[in-house]
Amino acid sequence: MSAHIDVTNLNVFYGKQQALTNVSISIPRQQITVIMGPSGCGKTTLLKSFNRFLELTDGTTITGAVHVDGQNIYAGDVDVTAVRKRVGLLAQRPTPLPMSIYDNVCYGMSIHQMRTSKADYTAAVQHYLELAGLWDEVKTRLHEPATSLSIGQQQRLCLARGLAVEPEVILGDEPTSALDPISSQHIEKRMLELKSQYTTVIVTHTLRQAKRLADYVIFMYMGEVVEAGVAREVFSNPQQERTRQYLEGVF
């Protein structure tokens, strides 16, 4: 297994409150890694350390290193926008930008100036909407506002928008928790299809979703990594008592 993201000795504080303690973990390339654990255990904090989203909150202190493909994204000379282009984020609730469906997909591409002609953009829009499994539903209404889509469609649009800037890593912060079961299935299906091309890291607190998606599992408790390993092994034979309790639904 080759690691795509390497976390070494990561400590995160919100003010004086410690959210992550000495986290060291490796995330395998082109697989789905699921971070799980009870509420407030630091799952989302760990996830958001991968695209440098933590620093958007005032009073956050971060020590340690996160290497993506060997580059420490917390090094002084690293451009944060480049990090976020490489490491995309699918948020908990769908957040279509207040513009058309077409412009939503174009947004990142035009910011990073990734295409030159209108035709290139249009072709790319189709490509990424197809990747996200949304094309057939929206191909006749590309110039309608993105907010006119259903919630489930909006989340797939956000996926297309994220994929359009050609990231290596996709982060998902409970990306199906605001969706109905059918829409959730849609998203899960996409993630499974895309995992051969992207390294995917998902936070979830539904154990069943974790079991459906995960190749690799990280179990966290109170800001620390309790156990991490290949999903099949962790689910069938947890090494730690806490993991076993969590899997059995004790807490």
Binding site: N51, F53, L56, T81, A82, V83, R84, K85, G88, L89, A91, R93, T95, P96, L97, P98, Y107, G108, I111, H112, C158, R161, G162, V165
Partner: peptide, 15 residues
């Protein structure tokens, strides 16, 4: 304006 909207844009690598 909801914070989520800003984050959606920043997450894509916008300044």
């Amino acid at each position: 304006v909801p914070v989520d909207l800003r984050n959606a844009s920043l997450a894509i690598g916008a300044t």
